[in-house]
Design a protein around this nucleic acid. Structure first.
Length: 571
DNA sequence: GCCGTTTTCGGCCCGACTGTTTTCAGTCG
């Protein structure tokens, strides 16, 4: 049973306990445990075997006992018992916007509603507005919540969300109503997918900004409109939240609305112990309500004895402790990147020429770029054979003659076949500057088989890097099952780089996996896997994901000069 | 149900908006 499934069970239990009106702290404990397990890069089974479940922060003896049963038998009697007193499908209903545990419980008890379909029927015949404490408006809100739920179950990728956010910010910025404006929430933390877009504006003209925001051209409905916050729903179903704040509180509000929720909760626990209070208006002394800091985020963290944490780190994964003892990482920056090591051209399945790639990489200020077309094994991608690669190398040599401070490298993306073999023999592989290998087929194999295939490739002295190691496509394809601990261990032992594929629907390795790789001493390459020169700009999505993985400049091989990189490429 | 550099018991983050009802509960982030 994988971590996600275990986390889902814990979340369901948390939701059910909340519907049953159990102690808030009890159901929060389940959600907290779920969150920890969900973001853990290591297999829960292995942690259990090596260190025991209670070594995980947020899992105590109670939850550990229940998880032991779940991992051993595939069932948890406590969960099964809960489902006898309450239909499990109610946990689905509380995920609809506007419906929380209290309403879900009323629907169930008064109308016998157990499923979303039944809820839809009840809304259609006007049953909801007859319930105690509810009216026509409530029913309309639920109807809208259902529409959103049905029509917009997916989350946006970063390259979809960022342009929308930038457009709205530009729209609000246009006529001087706002002093300062920024994204906040998951978008500012560069989370890999985005559920809604948060925007924070500092202004003295709250109601004018609110009016302008609520008449944004793409708006389908206004969900809430006040002097400090407004929410709109776009025709696409995407929700945008705007917070307005006076300029002197901007830093406090930015800190507050950037989150994450877990980061803020942890922070406020510390704040409280110091006799202070932190909210979106600032940091205050409780005894006399004196404002201690509010203008910038840095002021607030500084007043708490912490160095400023970049938004990507704010997930309550140890950054607060590190900020207190001064051990925060010096995160890699976009200007550190000196090249891109995974690029396709129209020779295989890309769309741009060598010249176009070289021109655009030089514009980005790179020192080098590696052309890595597919090899002949990958027929669907028009993979190149020996002859065509040799022709490409001649072209590259010609181009390189004309460059001053830039070099095109000769590379290949090999296909790791179902037994761990690759397209070419060792002699030929020795002629490339950089050899990448990745899995493009045989996703259905067992965890051990796929893990062994990748490790076999890493053992090959000519293979420098394993690309998109988990194979996931966000929103479309789950990662294939691999033992990430073993992969990371083998990468570090064989000195094979692991890729952080910056393509916004991959971001593979993920933030948590990157951090585990760094801790094991593996080196990472952030590559775009560009199939068009436009894609070279995707480097920023990889970069921010790298920051979420706590990576520093020296962890990332394509921050090195070509000279240093070449030394590392010798295994 | 979890946790401990004030605690193995007694705590556990904070505020805005909505809808419904007249002072607040529910929901959200």
């Amino acid at each position: 049973m994988d971590n996600k499934k275990v986390a889902d069970v814990l979340d369901d239990i948390g939701d059910m306990l909340e519907i049953m009106d159990q102690s808030r702290f009890r159901y929060l404990a389940y959600h907290r445990a779920s969150q920890v397990i969900r973001s853990m890069p290591r297999d829960l089974e292995e942690v259990r075997r090596d260190e025991g479940l209670t070594s995980i922060k947020g899992i105590g003896s109670g939850i550990a006992e229940k998880l032991n049963e779940l991992l051993d038998t595939g069932q948890m009697s406590y969960f099964e018992e809960l489902k006898k007193s309450l239909p499990g499908s109610l946990t689905e209903i509380v995920h609809i916007q506007g419906i929380g545990p209290k309403k879900a419980k009323i629907f169930y008890e008064k109308l016998g509603i157990e499923t979303i379909d039944q809820l839809e029927e009840a809304v259609a015949v006007g049953k909801i507005q007859e319930l105690p404490g509810m009216g026509v408006k409530t029913e309309e809100n639920i109807e809208r919540g259902l529409e959103v739920y049905r029509g917009y179950e997916g989350r946006l990728l970063l390259n979809q969300a960022i342009p929308i956010a930038e457009h709205i910010i530009d729209y609000l910025n246009r006529d001087g109503l706002v002093d300062n404006i920024s994204t906040a929430g998951s978008l500012r933390r560069w989370q890999e997918t985005i559920g809604d877009i948060d925007v924070l504006a500092s202004t003295r003209r709250h109601s004018e900004v609110a009016d302008k925001f609520c008449t944004y051209p793409e708006t389908s409905s206004v969900l809430a409109k006040g002097d400090t916050k407004c929410s709109i729903l776009l025709h696409s179903g995407l929700q945008i939240d705007l917070r307005m704040i006076d300029p002197e509180h901007y830093g406090a509000a930015l800190q507050y609305f950037t989150g994450s929720k877990a980061h803020n909760i942890h922070l406020r626990e510390i704040v409280k112990k110091k006799g202070l209070k932190l909210n979106e208006y600032g940091l205050f002394r409780i005894k006399d309500d004196m404002n201690i800091a509010a203008k910038t985020e840095e002021d607030i963290y500084k007043a708490l004895g912490m160095t400023l944490m970049e938004p990507e780190l704010r997930e309550d994964k140890g950054e607060i402790e590190a900020a207190i003892d001064g051990s925060l990482p010096h995160l890699v920056k976009l200007v550190d990147i000196k090249g891109d090591l995974h690029i396709h051209t129209k020779a295989s399945d890309g769309q741009s020429s060598l010249e176009e790639i070289a021109d655009n990489c030089q514009e980005l200020g790179y020192e080098y770029a590696c052309i890595t077309d597919h090899a002949f094994d990958l027929k669907v991608a028009h993979g190149l054979d020996v002859k065509r690669f040799e022709d490409q190398w001649k072209e590259i040599d010609e181009l390189n003659k004309a460059f001053d401070d830039f070099t095109l490298l000769k590379g290949v993306e090999l296909n790791i076949d179902n037994k761990g073999g690759v397209d070419f023999d060792d002699d030929f592989l020795g002629r490339y500057d950089v050899v990448l290998a990745s899995i493009h087929m045989g996703f259905g194999q067992s965890k051990d088989q796929i893990t062994d295939r990748i490790i076999a490739a890493m053992e090959n002295p000519h293979i420098d890097m394993v690309c998109h190691p988990t194979g996931r496509i966000l929103g479309r394809r789950p990662p294939y099952s691999i033992n990430m601990d073993k992969i990371i261990e083998a990468a570090s032992r064989t000195r094979t780089f692991l890729e952080l594929n910056a393509f916004p629907d991959r971001l593979d390795l993920s933030d948590d996996q990157l951090r585990a790789a760094k801790q094991a001493g593996s080196k990472i390459a952030i590559n775009t896997d560009a199939h068009h020169f436009y894609h070279l700009a995707y480097m920023r999505y990889g970069l921010h994901t790298a920051k979420r993985g706590w990576l520093e400049k020296e962890d990332v091989v394509n921050t090195f000069t070509l000279e240093k990189l070449k030394k590392l490429l010798v295994k």
